[in-house]
C-alpha cells in the first residue's frame, strides 16, 4: 500500500488542475462574452459593418462559444497562447520575457521578505508585549497601511531623489549582469517587501503564540531551556503549516499584485504588460495573462497545502 501522504498529495494536485480548468473557463467567459462584441471593441465607433464582419470572421467570432473555448484551451495546452491583436505577434515569447521579469522582481522581494518576516515574528514572540514586539508591530503595521503607490513615491523621493542611492526607474534590458539588474530593481523590491512584511510577520507571531500555549512548551520551560530555543525548536516546527499558508498567499500577491508597483517604477513585467493590453482591448493577451496569474496563484497555494501535509508528523509518520 502506498504511503498515505502520496494519496493526499495526489489528491491536492488533481484538485489544483481542476481549479485551473475552472479558472480558464471563468477567464474565457469574462473576456469573450461579457464585453459584448469584441470586434466592435477593437475597431471602435468608426467601424463600418463590413470591416466588423471581416474582423469577426478573422477572429472566428462567428463560431459557437463552446468550440471557441476548446479551440483556445487546446492551443494553450500545446503551448500556443494565441496572437496579440494589437501587433499581430505571438503572445508566448513576449509574455515569457515579461513573466521572467516579474518572477525576478517577486523572487528578489520574497528572498528578503520571507526570512525577515519569520525572524521578526520569532523576535516578537520572544519579547512579546515588550518594546521590541511593539516596535516591530508598529512599523510593519504602518508600512502595510500606506498604499503601495504612495510608498513607491516616498522611497523614490528619499532614496532616489534626495540621497541618490538607487535609480528611480527600474529599467532592465537584455545583457545586464545580475548585479546591475538587482541594483535596478532596488526600489520596487523595497516597496514590495514593506507591503508584504507586516502580514507575514503578524501571522507568524500569532501562529507561534498559539503554539506557545500548549503543554509541551510548558514542558520545555520546565526543562530549563533558553526562551529562544523553546520558540525555535519546540514552537516553530508546530507552527509551520499556518506560516507557510500565509507566506504563499503573500508570494502569490507578489506575483499577481505587483501591477501598481510595476507601473510606478516603469518596470517591464507582467503587470505593465497586462495594463497596456487592457487599455488596447487586446483580449487574447488579457486572457493569457489571466491564465498565467491564475496558474501562479493556484500553484503557490498548492505548494502551501502540500507543505502543510508534509509538516504534519501524524501524516508523515503514520502509526
Amino acid at each position: 500500500m502506498a504511503h498515505p501522504i502520496v494519496k493526499l498529495v495526489a489528491q491536492r494536485l488533481a484538485l489544483g488542475l481542476l481549479l485551473l480548468l475552472a479558472a480558464s473557463v471563468l477567464i474565457f467567459v469574462g473576456t469573450q462574452i461579457l464585453p459584448g462584441d469584441v470586434a466592435q471593441a477593437i475597431l471602435g465607433q468608426s467601424a463600418t459593418p463590413e470591416t466588423l464582419a471581416n474582423l469577426r470572421e478573422e477572429l472566428g467570432l462567428n463560431e459557437p462559444v463552446v468550440s471557441r473555448y476548446f479551440g483556445w484551451l487546446f492551443g494553450v495546452l500545446q503551448g500556443d497562447l494565441g496572437t496579440a491583436l494589437s501587433n499581430g505577434q505571438p503572445i508566448g515569447p513576449a509574455l515569457g520575457g515579461r513573466l521572467a521579469n516579474t518572477l525576478f522582481l517577486a523572487g528578489a522581494a520574497a528572498v528578503i521578505a520571507v526570512p525577515l518576516a519569520v525572524l521578526l515574528g520569532l523576535v516578537s514572540v520572544r519579547y512579546r508585549n515588550r518594546w521590541p514586539d511593539k516596535a516591530i508591530s508598529a512599523v510593519t503595521l504602518a508600512t502595510i497601511s500606506v498604499p503601495e503607490f504612495l510608498l513607491g513615491y516616498i522611497v523614490i523621493y528619499f532614496l532616489a531623489v534626495q540621497w541618490r542611492l538607487l535609480p528611480s526607474l527600474a529599467t532592465v534590458y537584455d545583457g545586464m549582469t545580475l548585479g546591475e539588474r538587482l541594483y535596478a530593481i532596488g526600489l520596487p523590491v523595497i516597496v514590495l517587501v514593506l507591503a508584504v512584511l507586516g502580514h507575514m510577520m503578524r501571522m507568524t507571531r500569532a501562529a507561534i503564540l498559539n503554539v506557545m500555549q500548549s503543554s509541551y512548551v510548558e514542558t520545555a520551560e520546565l526543562k530549563g531551556l533558553r526562551p529562544f530555543t523553546i520558540i525555535a525548536r519546540h514552537a516553530f516546527p508546530n507552527a509551520i503549516a499556518p506560516i507557510v499558508n500565509v507566506v504563499m498567499i503573500n508570494l502569490a500577491y507578489l506575483v499577481v499584485g505587483v501591477v501598481v508597483v510595476e507601473v510606478v517604477f516603469v518596470y517591464p513585467g507582467m503587470g505593465q504588460y497586462l495594463v497596456d493590453h487592457v487599455s488596447k482591448r487586446d483580449v487574447p493577451v488579457v486572457q493569457a495573462c489571466g491564465l498565467v496569474f491564475a496558474g501562479v496563484y493556484i500553484g503557490l497555494n498548492l505548494i502551501a497545502d502540500i507543505v502543510s501535509i508534509l509538516a504534519n508528523p501524524r501524516l508523515r509518520h503514520p502509526k
Partner: peptide, 21 residues
C-alpha cells in the same frame, strides 16, 4: 535547576511531548 536538578512529569504526557519531534 529546571530539567537537571528538579524535573517534572505532567498529567497528560500526550500533550506534554512536542508532536513534531
Amino acid at each position: 535547576l529546571r530539567g537537571k536538578e528538579v524535573t517534572y512529569v505532567a498529567q497528560s504526557a500526550a500533550a506534554s511531548f512536542n508532536p513534531a519531534k
